[in-house]
């Protein structure tokens, strides 16, 4: 799974919209679309413990990304279904398209871990993964081990990459950008929040997801490498205590995570297929945009 990358990518998606859609797509919808997959699937992945009894998935990776399981929450198919439902309910193209783009960003980013996502569900229940880093959510390790593994692997590079993408287009975080591009498509929602917040507060609300992403990237990385003192089972069977979790920026790392897999397709076809799917989603979004805006005016 990806961590802060999901917080950063919503700004990147909004900032890199096709020219025709700029300033017309709802930022809240992109956020909601990107947020939905883990909102439905992740709470049970780690589970919770009450009075020594653990409640949660018996097989976290299958629950999170597999079928049977909640893997369908990480599919472009579900994003399209919900976006279509939004359209038929409210006839708001800014929300329908924004939700779809945010949802697709999440499902496509998650092909990077060793479990991946079911890209072609419901036509195929096979997972699509390029295995950039190891999926590390386990019952024993919980969120701490997962965070430590992610921020010791190429997952850290992934988060940093998305952070750089947003910082490279830093104007998307400015007050002027927020006023001219973010507020107009969601004018009513921002006006509603404006009943409780001043302008600095509203701007903070827009930047809040970015802030959370930066802070969790710094906090988990610092904790994993400067504070934690983990005891790790080495490949030769002996246990050793480390000052901080060991870094491993090799493909598929870190080495100290036991790999888990689900039925999957060849990694070689994953990236081209994902890019083709992304191009298809944008092409469809552009194609339906004009029809949707015309229909929303009639409605």
């Amino acid at each position: 799974m990806s961590w802060a990358a999901h917080q950063f990518e919503i700004y990147a998606v909004e900032n890199h919209l096709p020219k025709r859609l700029r300033g017309k797509i709802s930022f809240f919808a992109i956020f909601l679309g990107d947020f939905t997959p883990d909102f439905f699937a992740k709470f049970w992945v780690y589970g919770f413990t009450i009075n020594g009894t653990h409640y949660g998935a018996t097989n976290p990776h299958r629950w999170h990304r597999g079928w049977p399981g909640m893997g369908f929450t990480h599919t472009v198919f579900l994003g399209a279904i919900v976006a279509a439902a939004m359209w038929f309910w409210k006839h708001n193209p800014a929300w329908a398209i924004g939700y779809m783009l945010g949802f697709a960003a999440h499902a496509l980013t998650d092909i990077n871990d060793s479990i991946g996502t079911m890209l072609l569900f419901p036509f195929s229940a096979h997972n699509w993964s390029i295995g950039t880093w190891a999926y590390a959510a386990t019952i024993e390790g919980g969120k701490y081990f997962d965070g430590a593994a992610y921020y010791s692997s190429l997952g850290f590079v992934m988060d940093t990459f998305w952070l750089v993408v947003v910082l490279a287009s830093w104007r998307c975080l400015t007050r002027d950008y927020w006023r001219t591009r973010i507020v107009p498509p969601d004018a009513r929602a921002w006006a509603w929040f404006g009943r409780f917040l001043s302008e600095p507060g509203l701007l903070a609300l827009y930047r809040a997801t970015f802030f959370y992403g930066v802070c969790r990237l710094i906090t988990w990385t610092t904790w994993a490498h400067l504070i934690a003192r983990p005891t790790i089972l080495l490949p030769d069977g002996t246990a050793r205590t480390f000052d901080g979790y060991p870094w491993d920026l090799s493909w598929g790392g870190p080495w100290w995570v036991t790999p888990v897999r689900l039925p999957h397709v060849s990694p070689w076809i994953v990236l081209p297929t994902a890019l083709a799917l992304l191009a298809l989603i944008y092409a469809i979004a552009l194609r339906v945009w004009d029809r949707m805006t015309a229909a929303s005016l009639v409605a």
Binding site: Y144, P200, G201, F211, W223
Partner: peptide, 22 residues
């Protein structure tokens, strides 16, 4: 967050900034 990881979640994180700035 370094010493109390319970705050490192998507509700507290964004809310922290909004409340602080407001």
């Amino acid at each position: 967050g370094l010493f109390y990881k319970g705050v490192l979640n998507w509700i507290v994180g964004p809310l922290w900034l909004v409340v602080w700035v407001e």
